[in-house]
Amino acid sequence: MEFLRPQTWAEALAAKAELPGAVPIQGGTDVMVEINFDVRRPPALLDLTRVAELARWSAEPDGRLRVGAGVPYARVISELADRLPGLAQAARTVGSPQIRNRGTVGGNLGAASPAGDSHPPLLACGAVIEVESAARGVRAVPAEEFYLGVKRNALEPDELIKAFVTPVAGGPQYFSKVGTRNAMVIAVCSFCVALHPAERRAGTGIGSAAPVPLRALAAEEFLAAELDWAGTAPLAPALLTRFGELVGAAAAPIDDVRGTAAYRRHALSVLARRTLTWAWNDHRKAAERCA
């Protein structure tokens, strides 16, 4: 096995082009488990932790945030919770403090597990994943086009994930996850809702309830049509029920050791109603303050 240690992004892309079988490694919290258990014996490891731009985040000229693939969860929580509350809430539920110190959103995207906790907030926020190759330059892939199947993503063999670019939260966002404990759990299912009051719509993301993380599109359309953005009334129970049903219906869950398909659908409906209630209550408070 080779151990490649590029110092710059250009060197990293060149190395990946030359040896497409090289496995990128950032926090190693997925890669090293596979190597320790002999699931994988790649020809080379491509260590990206020395590439400084991957560990940075910044504001784009258009106001969106660009977050490098190598920013660990601990920093998403400590530095970005005000701008990306949904993602920060999801990051808080990942593994343990040790895992959050190392694990990254880029690694979560690379692994593309349907249960990855970054995915529902990235979908709900409308994030775009930036990938790059030495030969063809940068491609911007919307999150919903990035996930192709169980542990399969849209990366070509010579490409690396550079960053994700996402609007700063323009309204309340809530992430919620079902698991057997408060720490160290893979999601049985998870859900994120992000209100975008300026656009009078809401984004959603479902995790661990289909081969890929996905948006609940019919539920989003329903909210865009039914929510009274100018009003400050609580949500009608019928609206919440319908929203929960539409989110549950959007999923395509399976029975496995963590839960049955029927349980997942039911739990998703509950998560959807709860997170929307929290988000709407925050939105009402903000609207009352402005009034």
Binding site: F3, G28, I35, Q98, N101
Partner: peptide
């Protein structure tokens, strides 16, 4: 990464040493 018994500081942050590749 499940048990934490390998926890060490790496550049000042506690991490699971079993999940850090030596070359890193």
């Amino acid at each position: 990464g499940e048990c934490g018994s390998c926890t060490v500081y790496l550049d000042g942050s506690p991490v699971c040493a079993c999940l850090v590749a030596a070359g890193q």
